[in-house]
Design a protein around this nucleic acid. Structure first.
Length: 631
DNA sequence: GAGAACCACA
C-alpha cells in the first residue's frame, strides 16, 4: 500500500471506495482540487474529463462515475484492482457501475470477465452486458447473453430489450426481430417508448416499412425518438412525402424537436428535392434557434445541394464553425454532382490545410467530380495520390470513377487496362461505367464485352439491355437492336417508363411520355409546337437514335417527340416568369436528344434550366451545360 | 447503478 500512496489518484479513489463501504456521509481529508498525477506516467496528465473534480464531501458513485470520462483502459483496470483489494466489489451498485464503464469503453472482454465473476447479478448487470455486446456488434454474445438472461428466469425489462432489438436491427435479422417482438407481446410486459421505438426502428431498418408504420400508428403516444425514427424510415424507403406529412403532424401536436429529429427532417427534404421545402426547413431551424452543429450543418449542406441550390449549400458550409471529413466530403460531392469539378478540387487543399484527412468517400467524391467535368489529368493524379500520400486503398467505387473518367474522355483502352489490373472484386457499377463510355464513343465490341458481364450479374435489370440497345442503335445496327428487344420480350422485361417532375410555385407537376393528363395540357402542347419551330430555325434536329423508346407511346409534336422532360420544360416556360430558373427533377439520365434539346431551349429562351437527374444536376445557361458535354 | 433516433460518395 505504501507504494500506491505515491500515486495520489489511485489512493484517493481507493480510499473513497473503502470509505464508501462504511459510510457515505462523513468527510475525509483528500488531495486538493486540480490536476492529479498520472500513476502510469507522471509527465502525462490524467485523462479525466473537465468535470472530474474531487470534492471533500464523499459520494462513492461519483468516484466511479469520474472514470466515465477516463479514456485509459489501463487506469480503469487499476481502479478495478483497487476496488477488489478494498473489498467493495461485492457492492452490486459498484460492480454494475464498473461493468458499465468497461462496456462504455468497449472493453467487453474485461466486462465479461467481471460479469462472470459476479456472485450476485441483477437486471442492471444483464442489461449492461447485453447492451455492451450489442453496441460493439458482437451479435453472437449479445443473443447468447440474452438467452442466458431468460434461462436464468430473469423478468424481461424495458432496459434490456431495446439492446437486443437493436442487435436484430444492425444484423438486419428480421426473423430474430419478429421472434423477440413475439416474446415481448406474450410476456405481458408493459411496452414503454424505448421498446416501441426500438421495434419501429428495427422494422424500418430491416425494410419492413409497413410493419414499422403499423406499430407506429398503434402507439397511443409517441415520443420524439419514435417520430424521428419514422420520419427517417419513410425518407429512406422512398416516401419522403410521408416524412414531410409526419413532420407537419408532429409540429401540429406540439412535439418539440431536437437536432437529431431535425437531421431526419432535413434528410427527408433532401430526398424530396424541393427547394421550396428546403427553404421552409432552413427557416424553421433559424426561427427555432437550432445550432447548426457539424451533423445538422452537414445535413443542411446536403439538402440544399440536392435541392439544386449549390450556392446556399456553400453558404452554410462557410458559416459552419466545425467541419469534419463528412462535411468536407459532402461539399466536394455537391460540387461534383452540380458539374462544378474545379470548385470541388479547390476544396481539397483547403480541407488538408484545416487538418482534416480525406477518407475513401472523399476520394470517391473527388474522382466523381473529375469524371463529370472531364478533368482527366487531375483525376489520374488524385487516384495515384490516394494510396501513395493518404494510405487510402482504392476500392471498386474509385476504379469505377476512373473507368468513367477515362471512358468518357475516349481513353477506352486505358479504362480496360485499369479494369484488368484490378485486384478488388468487380461489380456491375464498374461494367456499367464502361458500357456507358462505349455508348458515347461508339465502341460496339467493348460494349458487348461489358454488357456480357453486366447481364451475367443482373439479367433482370432492363436498364442494361436498354444501354446495349442504344449502343447498337448509335452504330446503326438495327438488327441487333431488334435482337435485344426480342430478348427483353422473351425475358419479360419492360423498360421502366420515364417520369419527370417539375417544381413550380411550390408545387410538383409530373409528366410521362405523351402525357395529356395535365390540366394545362393543351397549352403545353401548343408551347411545344412553338418551340419546335424556333428550335428548327436555331438548327436543332431531334435525334431519335438514343433511348430504347416505344414509338407507340410517343406523340409527335411538330418535329419533336413529347418525352416527359420536354413536356416538363414546356410547362416550365409557361408557368414560370421570365428571369426565373426552371427546375426540373427527372428520374432518368439526361442524355442524348434530351440533353441537346435542353441546351437549345436554354439558348433561344435565355432561361437557366436546372435539371436534377437522380442525384446529378445539370445547369443549362445560354446553350451551355455546367457538366461536360458527353452526349 | 442500465435505455432508443441523426450527417457525406456510389
Amino acid at each position: 500500500m505504501s507504494k500506491l500512496k505515491k500515486h495520489g489518484f489511485l489512493v484517493s479513489i481507493s480510499a473513497k471506495l473503502r470509505f464508501f463501504s462504511s459510510s457515505t456521509t462523513a468527510a475525509i481529508a483528500l488531495e486538493p482540487h486540480g490536476h492529479e498525477q498520472n500513476p502510469m506516467n507522471p509527465r502525462v496528465p490524467m485523462q479525466m474529463g473537465p468535470d472530474c473534480q474531487f470534492t471533500r464531501s464523499v459520494d462513492p458513485k461519483f468516484f466511479i462515475s469520474s472514470l466515465l470520462s477516463c479514456r485509459n483502459i489501463f487506469q480503469i483496470r487499476q481502479v478495478h484492482a483497487q476496488i477488489v483489494a478494498g473489498g467493495t466489489l461485492t457492492n452490486l451498485i459498484v460492480a454494475n457501475k464498473l461493468l458499465y464503464i468497461y462496456a462504455l469503453h468497449k472493453a467487453l472482454t474485461d466486462a465479461h470477465a467481471l460479469f462472470n465473476g459476479m456472485k450476485e447479478r441483477d437486471s442492471v448487470s444483464w442489461s449492461v452486458m447485453v447492451g455492451g455486446f450489442s453496441k460493439v456488434a458482437d451479435f453472437i454474445n449479445c443473443f447468447e447473453t440474452f438467452r442466458e438472461f431468460i434461462r436464468c428466469g430473469m423478468q424481461l425489462d424495458s432496459y434490456t430489450l431495446p439492446f437486443v432489438i437493436r442487435a436484430c436491427r444492425d444484423r438486419k435479422d428480421i426473423v430474430m426481430g419478429r421472434l423477440i417482438h413475439d416474446i415481448v407481446l406474450k410476456s405481458g410486459l408493459d411496452i414503454d417508448q424505448f421498446v416501441c421505438a426500438a421495434l419501429v426502428d428495427m422494422y424500418a431498418k430491416c425494410k419492413v416499412i409497413d410493419d414499422a408504420r403499423q406499430l407506429f400508428d398503434q402507439m397511443p403516444t409517441r415520443d420524439l425518438v419514435t417520430w424521428t425514427v419514422m420520419i427517417g424510415a419513410c425518407a429512406e424507403s422512398g416516401n419522403a412525402n410521408e416524412s414531410w406529412d409526419l413532420f407537419e403532424r408532429m409540429r401540429g401536436e406540439g412535439v418539440v424537436l431536437d437536432n437529431t429529429a431535425m437531421v431526419s427532417v432535413v434528410y427527408a427534404c433532401a430526398k424530396l428535392g424541393s427547394i421550396h421545402k428546403a427553404r421552409l426547413v432552413h427557416d424553421f431551424l433559424t426561427r427555432n434557434k437550432f445550432l447548426l452543429d457539424v451533423i445538422l450543418g452537414t445535413a443542411v449542406i446536403d439538402m440544399y445541394a440536392k435541392c439544386g441550390s449549390i450556392d446556399s449549400a456553400r453558404e452554410i458550409f462557410d458559416r459552419m464553425r466545425q467541419k469534419n471529413v463528412i462535411s468536407w466530403s459532402a461539399m466536394i460531392a455537391a460540387y461534383g454532382y452540380h458539374g462544378q469539378g474545379k470548385k470541388a478540387l479547390d476544396l481539397f487543399p483547403m480541407m488538408l490545410s484545416s487538418r482534416v484527412l480525406p477518407n475513401r468517400i472523399t476520394f470517391v467524391s473527388l474522382l466523381y467530380a473529375c469524371s463529370h467535368t472531364g478533368l482527366v489529368e487531375e483525376g489520374l493524379r488524385l487516384f495515384s495520390s490516394m494510396w501513395d500520400d493518404f494510405a487510402v486503398r482504392p476500392d471498386v467505387k474509385h476504379y469505377t470513377c476512373m473507368v468513367d473518367l477515362l471512358g468518357r474522355a475516349g481513353r477506352l483502352d486505358e479504362a480496360l487496362k485499369l479494369i484488368e489490373s484490378m485486384s478488388v472484386e468487380k461489380d456491375e457499377g464498374l461494367w456499367g461505367a464502361l458500357l456507358g463510355a462505349c455508348r458515347i464513343h461508339k465502341n460496339v465490341d467493348l460494349a458487348e464485352m461489358a454488357a456480357k458481364s453486366l447481364l451475367e450479374r443482373q439479367p433482370q435489370n432492363p436498364g442494361h439491355y436498354v444501354l446495349l440497345s442504344n449502343v447498337y442503335a448509335n452504330a446503326g445496327r438495327w438488327q441487333d437492336v431488334a435482337k435485344i428487344r426480342d430478348l427483353m420480350t422473351r425475358r419479360r422485361l419492360k423498360k421502366i417508363p420515364g417520369w419527370t417532375w417539375i417544381e413550380v410555385e411550390n408545387k410538383i407537376h409530373q409528366f410521362s411520355v405523351g402525357d395529356s393528363t395535365h390540366p394545362q395540357s393543351e397549352e403545353i402542347y401548343r408551347m411545344l409546337v412553338t418551340l419546335s419551330e424556333k428550335l428548327e430555325l436555331a438548327g436543332y434536329i431531334p435525334d431519335t437514335n438514343f433511348e430504347l423508346h416505344d414509338v407507340d407511346e410517343e406523340v409527335k409534336v411538330g418535329n419533336l417527340y413529347s418525352h416527359s422532360e420536354k413536356l416538363a420544360i414546356a410547362f416550365g416556360l409557361i408557368a414560370t416568369p421570365e428571369g426565373t430558373h426552371i427546375r426540373i427533377m427527372k428520374n432518368l439520365r439526361v442524355c442524348g436528344d434530351c440533353h441537346s434539346f435542353i441546351k437549345h431551349v436554354s439558348a433561344i429562351t435565355r432561361r437557366v434550366i436546372i435539371v436534377r437527374d437522380a442525384n446529378r444536376f445539370h445547369h443549362f445557361e445560354g446553350g451551355a451545360c455546367s457538366c461536360r458535354d458527353y452526349w
